[in-house]
Simulated assay, not measured.
Amino acid sequence: MLGPLGVSAEQEQLYTALISRPGSTAEELARRTAVALPGTTALLEDMAAQGLVVDEGVNPLPGPDRETTLARTYRASSPSIALTPPAARQRTALDQAESAVLALTEQFRSIESRSADGVVEVVRDPVRRTPPLRPTPR
């Protein structure tokens, strides 16, 4: 769903998991998603560089047998802050592409109208505007 914004499917899995469970470690995220642990750490570092997640650093966490362990934790950045700018850039790029298509279409039609050979535009999946012909009784 976030692919058009430059977010891979694996990054989206991690981001979604972090939204529902902030302060997760790479190990916890690997267990909760389909992303392998070595890949999880690299993806989280990339996502932190992109502003999608915040690296909270190394924090004490409760370990087995009530021992405290140290582990790096992450939390998701706000979607409105992290994802709105790339969505706006994508929207602007699409608007520019649409303007280019309109300009090219106008140029194409201008040249077509001056051509003696007459170029024909092919319409696919036309909407039927007239009823089908019926055989006349004899």
Rank of each mutant, 00 (worst) to 15 (best):
M1C: 05
G6V: 01
V7P: 11
S8I: 07
A9H: 07
A9Q: 08
Q11V: 02
Q11W: 05
E12T: 02
Y15P: 05
Y15H: 05
Y15A: 03
A17F: 08
A17R: 13
I19T: 07
I19W: 02
T25Q: 01
T25E: 01
A26Y: 06
L29T: 07
A30W: 05
V35R: 02
A36Q: 12
L37C: 12
L37E: 05
L37M: 10
T40A: 05
L43A: 10
E45V: 13
G51H: 02
L52H: 04
V53G: 00
V58C: 04
L61R: 10
L61V: 09
G63V: 02
P64G: 08
P64Q: 10
E67M: 13
T69Q: 01
T69N: 01
Y74C: 07
P79W: 14
P79I: 10
S80F: 11
A82R: 10
P85D: 00
P86K: 02
P86I: 05
P86H: 00
A88H: 06
R89Q: 05
Q90W: 10
R91P: 08
A93P: 01
L94R: 08
A97Y: 12
S99A: 12
A103M: 07
E106G: 12
Q107K: 11
S110Y: 12
R114D: 10
R114V: 13
V120Q: 13
D125E: 07
P126W: 01
P132D: 14
P132Q: 15
P132M: 12
L133V: 15
R134E: 15
P135Q: 15
P135K: 15
